[in-house]
Nucleic acid binder design. Structure first.
Lengths: 214, 214
DNA sequence: TCATAAACTGACCACTGGTTATTTTTCATT
DNA sequence: AATGAAAAATAACCAGTGGTCAGTTTATGA
């Protein structure tokens, strides 16, 4: 009898509805502003029940974070074209990352917040976030490695390290841009211009056989 | 009578002792793990008194953050040498930033955490953090602008934007490196190697008249 | 039908940031 | 030195939070 399997499936579904509820509220109220009680209410459960499925608030929130990362990965993968050069793909990845940070600002914020802060208990969970199959970083890495074959991306740096540097550089800039809109007014800067210049800096840093001319 | 002045001075001093206490505890227990009660105890005051000097926990913590930023600025400024080229100084700034993130890991963490998260009430405070005279970003900007005069740094990008991009790139990478030590084991990476390669990427991106050769 | 286990609840706890009525201290004025 | 008003400091208090758990309900299989 498949009762066992059904039970497991039902449990997964329930777990999912909890994450659904959490997601919806967090995207509106943010990480800190969301309470377990609210989530329980939205999921039509009691608070205690949440703790049957997640050991802590943070663990539940990491699940939402994971969804955000998956969505980001999909968005990134979607712009990679086999017929393009690796360098071109890298550029598109950058654009897609920017696009994501704008179109899914809520998720982006969650991903960024989650990158900092944290307890030891969930350390292993967070660690795996960026490196599970299909994670954003691996999408980058994949393109970088392709760049070794078609020769359009520098290869004097180990691919993993280059991917890691690129990823965190992009993340750093986007984090800055997103979290401090006031700064742009202050210096009368244009956000698009800054990002464009980020690409100039990155490109001249990673594209092979390019003679700089000013 | 200088009673008024003395009172103000005493008030400032007391305010300072509170920040001292907060700083000491936060550096050990981190942002979230520190309670107002603890701080009050360490400052030999009652919790209520803290609220006579700071409107909220966050405001007090921003004060600590400000100290961290000032310390960072000092560390950065210290490595800038007038007789060196701007490009050389930029490199040294990068190294100094890395050094700071290691030697003052506690402060670095506070600065990073504070960059995210936050209430509206303290928005203006946080905004001013990075742009007050002598802020880290301005140290970078200063060197970049020098690079226009001695011609060692690319000048096709507005100095402010280049400084901003560089700063947030560095920050992004350092944030990544610091907050995920486990990742380096996972990929058998060397932290120093990654940072070295970050410099390669940055250098080839910003140094003028450099023909890339692989 | 009944007994076992799993799911679920809601009252409860400890703790936290923040408030405020009250007390203590300070100090110019008499 | 006495006094009284203002400033400083306190300690009890509040509301809200994450998390727990004894007890209840529900599902299951014999």
């Amino acid at each position: 009898m498949g009762t066992q399997e059904r039970k497991e499936r039902e449990r997964d579904e329930r777990r999912n509805t909890i994450v659904d509820a959490a997601e919806a509220i967090i995207l509106i109220k943010g990480f800190e502003g969301t309470t377990m009680e609210e989530i329980a209410e939205a999921a039509e459960l009691s608070k205690g029940t949440l703790y049957l499925y997640f050991r802590s608030k943070e663990e539940l929130f990491l699940e939402v974070n994971l969804r955000g990362l998956r969505l980001l990965s999909e968005n990134l993968s979607a712009v990679v074209r086999d017929e393009a050069t690796a360098a071109e793909n890298a550029l598109e990845l950058g654009k897609a990352y920017i696009h994501f940070s704008r179109e899914h600002a809520g998720y982006f914020k969650i991903i960024m917040t989650c990158q900092s802060a944290g307890q030891e208990r969930t350390d292993h969970l967070r660690k795996s976030l960026l490196f599970e199959p299909g994670s954003p970083l691996l999408v980058f890495l994949n393109v970088i490695e392709k760049g070794r074959l078609d020769g359009t991306i520098r290869h004097d740096i180990p691919a993993v390290e280059l991917a890691l540097v690129l990823w965190s550089q992009m993340t750093g800039v986007l984090q800055f841009v997103h979290h401090r809109p006031g700064i742009f007014e202050m210096f009368q800067l244009d956000e698009n211009s800054v990002l464009q210049n980020l690409f100039y800096v990155l490109q001249d840093g990673i594209i092979r056989n390019k003679t700089l001319s000013f």
